[in-house]
Design a binder for these strands. Sequence first.
RNA 1: GGGCGCGUAGCUCAGUGGGAGAGCGCUCGCUUCACACGCGAGAGGUCGCAGGUUCGAAACCCGCCGCGCCCA
Length: 898
Amino acid sequence: MYPGEDTDAPGQPPERRAGEVPERPTLDGLEAKWGAAWERERTYAFDRTAPRERVFSIDTPPPTVSGSLHVGHVFSYTHTDTIARYRRMRGMDVFYPMGWDDNGLPTERRVQNYYGVRCDPQVPFDPGFAAPTEPPEEPLSISRQNFVALCLTLTESDEQAFEDLWRTLGLSVDWGMTYTTIGPESQRISQSSFLGLLRRGVAYQLEAPTLWDVDFQTAVAQAELEDRERPGAMHRVRFGREDGGEALIDTTRPELIGACVALLAHPEDERHAALVGGEAITPLFGTRVPVLTHPLVQSDKGTGLVMVCTFGDLTDVVWWRELGLPVRPLLGADGRLVPVPWGEPGWESRNPDAARAAYSELEGRTVNQARRRIVELLAASGELVGEPQPIQHAVKFFEKGDRPVEIVTSRQWFIRTVEHQDALIARGRELRWDPPYMRARFEDWVHGLTGDWCISRQRFFGVPFPVWYPLDEQGQIRHEDPILAEEAQLPVDPSSDVPPGYEPDQRGTPGGFVADPDVMDTWATSSLTPQIVARAPSAASANRKDHGAARAGGQAVDDGDLFERVFPMDMRPQAHDIIRTWLFTTVLRSHLDYDVLPWREAAISGWVLDPDRKKMSKSKGNVVTPIALLEEHGADAVRYWAAKGRPGADTAFDAKQMKTGRRLAVKLLNASKFAIADLPPDAAAASHPLDRAMLERLAGVVTEATACFEDYDYARALQRSEDFFWWYCDYYLELVKGRRYAADPDISASVGHALRRSLSVLQRLFAPFLPFVCEEVWSWWQEGSVHRAPWPQEAELGGADGAREAAVNGSGTPAQRDLALDVVGDVLREVRKAKSNAKQPMRAPVERVLVRDTQERLDALALGADDLRQAGSIEIVHTEPGDEFGVEVQLADGNPAA
RNA sequence: GGGCGCGUAGCUCAGUGGGAGAGCGCUCGCUUCACACGCGAGAGGUCGCAGGUUCGAAACCCGCCGCGCCCA
């Protein structure tokens, strides 16, 4: 029960009031109580009038809205929040918005499964459409507009659930600044940036070989690929020659023999030198193909001779481009073999009838089906040499896909990246990386770029390209002559909006226009999160780069100079798995549009692994839901576990750490209650040597924790504070109990002073980690929120105060006082051990203690002997100089115990 | 194949040139006037292996083994 809880109306949390310490403090309910208070008092609101030098801006990762947050999110977002809270207490105005990444394939997939629908752009819009209450057996085909509406509905409820979870976790986000990547502002900025790139020739459209997912039937980007080990087979196939000879090649993709356009050998491979320059003839299809050389051919693989197809893998694309080979595409967008005209130009054959007959066995089949069949055909014709050899090999998959990516020629939008490689490496070196070794991943990725970034997707729930195409008099699309939206129009949906200079009824008519049907890759928008949160002004007609860094020449939209106050931002927190996607693309876009880094620092967090050190994933069934965690342990305890995870390091999920965190939070409640309830009178300064020594130790902790935070080492800051706090509770608080309850205010006031100072500092030291319990204990005796209180400083603890030093007599030098804490602690431990060995309670009286130690340590002991006697219930403490530390304890019952 | 990281007590981890540590778990004890969601005490380690540098190595260097990730 909290103060005032029973008198306030239900649902209305009690107003903050200082000075009341509950009889039985508890952690239960603190999340709801203080979550509501922070909202009411706008504790974390960003002050838009703050000058840039006082702003600390954070480019928070917008979590993908496709179901639920998992414990890995809780982990890394907590790291960011500890930094945000630290900076806020340091007096910074923290710009800390939250976003939701809701556009893109994950949402489409979720909507498909949740409602049992599929998007079919051919289906007309149904204004009265309502989603089925139960997903039907067969997916329902619905229009693009209805599909997008369902996506918006579902993401909205998901986003509310996400926000609730983040509030319960205690993220100190300004919830008045939330954005979504499908929202109008994101669309405007995304389209505006795209148009700028297009005008400057940095974005371009090209009909080209493109990585293609045959299930989603969309282009995908290099960054979205992953290798998966899959079983395959190496087939040795005999090609013919005009002179009747043969050429043997090895391939894992015999189904593409019909698409073969050349054979290649390494230029220095003597074995095939005679063949090079001549021609070979494909089996089954009888097509003549040239035999050429290229340095990328690996002579040690198979026969050293490879076939180049349209297109079996990315290397085929390189060869096709560099050797100027023709195309012979066999694969359709759905991953099946398309009909082709054998015998006609481009599909020449020595025997078109045989080619047609063989191909009829393959046409319309999937890649796998065609592969099985062609192996049978090759075996029957004697052109398969030996048996296929089973192998394990890495196959490229779209990271969200179920079948290997294919390479299909199609018209797509690209952003130039390859020519900026050097500049991007240089940007990566300007950036501060935490931990520093993460930069290697960025450089690896940039060095490995093989093509420009394909940003168009043949999907539905995304930001559309703000582009239409004119139709000529025959109704043919003139792709080379796109009509661009005007800045003032943005955001536009070209499928419903009309381009400048046209009428709506000209859509799809000869001489009229059609919309670009594609949407942007989700990263094409996510890469602009700094611009989105900062509400980047439109570029208008001028391009941004012409106006210099971070100073767009265009008109402000509605937030005036917010952009200039927060951009470039201070920190980008994110996990290491999306360095090649989110981090890379954000650096790229900022470089291209503003010629500047988007942020000063990238703080890279690790993953949460299950106790077997495997990545947590739904398919393994080892996912822990954050809500259950928060309910079981409480937000502060979960945050404690997260904050123990060092920057960049993967961390095993460990509920025991949460129990430890809860223990710490409970300890803070009880220690605060002990210290604050019936506080002794205050003094101008601590006069007792042990009080002063404790404060001096704490000053050292403050210095260290501050340095850790400045170095982004929140975990060590917590560790140092915690180490001190447990010592403080176990030794200091026990030692001073006698003086704390002393009737003489001259004695108790020194403790009163020390307790006030230390508790205040400790509550603030823990505030970034345990925001709920710290706010609770702070509210018992202080005005305002602890999260708006100043970060503690050494000077508060009177450490280096020369005047005060002189005013207090008999408390030794700082070194002697600190030693006194050690020696008193050592002796107390021995006394406790004696009682423990004698199976006596700790309060059991001790008749006599003899301490043998060096004179220096005995002198120090004298400074705290009174407190030692009290804490150990010791009658007399004798000392005896010696070389070795030793303690003899005489318990009051007469039995020597040690 | 290249790169990065990791390997310390049963578990999770801290410790970067000079005493091998913490929490949890385990054993024993204590209803001590803030706290039994507690307190006290104790047991437990050849610091992955091998070599080198050094007066001195868990730490620095070299090699190997194992695990994870990124890239090809």
